[in-house]
């Protein structure tokens, strides 16, 4: 079957099988940032944005993307670098395998919650597993990033 959708801002048209998962489709189409961590929707590694909302691409058929806007980390390189700097400054990127899904969900969270508390962060990102970092460094990086964004906003206001 043929599907058409917007992938990272570009319209694509492709043949796919009705049972192809979005995760596999995206990896086949050059979006290798999207990782598979399990088969049970437990790890969050495959998180992408569909119509600006985070979805697990392992639990969605590629066909469901038809007509939709899909964004992966490949489509948010500038933002990833900006936030990634904070993650890397904590050394919390570690093996990096969970980073893309985690970072996509951080972006989704920041769209929904303007000034999340630590508890809200832990709740929102509970589905993003990380086996290396113990999570503390990830949280530190988010809190520092929020501070930085706030300061940036203040500065813009002041001008």
């Amino acid at each position: 079957m043929e599907i058409k959708f917007w992938l990272n801002g570009k319209k694509i048209q492709a043949e796919t099988e009705p049972d192809t998962l979005l995760l596999d489709f995206l990896r086949e189409h050059g979006c290798c940032s999207v990782k598979r961590g399990c088969e049970t929707a437990n790890s969050g590694l495959c998180t992408v944005l569909m119509e600006d909302r985070p979805v697990l691409s392992c639990s969605m058929l590629a066909a469901r993307a038809d007509g939709k806007k899909i964004v992966t980390l490949e489509g948010m390189q500038k933002e990833a670098e900006e936030f990634g700097e904070f993650l890397a400054n904590e050394g919390a990127e570690q093996c990096g395998f969970c980073n893309p899904g985690f970072i996509m969900n951080v972006f989704a969270m920041l769209k929904e919650l303007s000034d999340p508390t630590e508890e809200e962060i832990n709740e929102y990102l509970a589905g993003n597993l990380c086996r290396c970092s113990g999570f503390m460094g990830q949280t530190r990086s988010i809190l520092k990033f929020l501070e930085y964004k706030k300061a940036e906003k203040e500065e813009a206001k002041g001008q």
Binding site: C32, S33, K35, T72, L73, E74, Q77, A80, E81, F83, G84, E85, L87, A88, N89, G91, E93, C95, G96, F97, N99, P100, I103
Partner: peptide, 18 residues
């Protein structure tokens, strides 16, 4: 010193390195 990891940028931007 708390140097950033040499591969940090590739990892946080999801480069195909695995």
């Amino acid at each position: 010193q708390p140097m950033q990891k040499k591969d940090a940028k590739a990892l946080v931007t999801g480069q195909p390195v695995y």
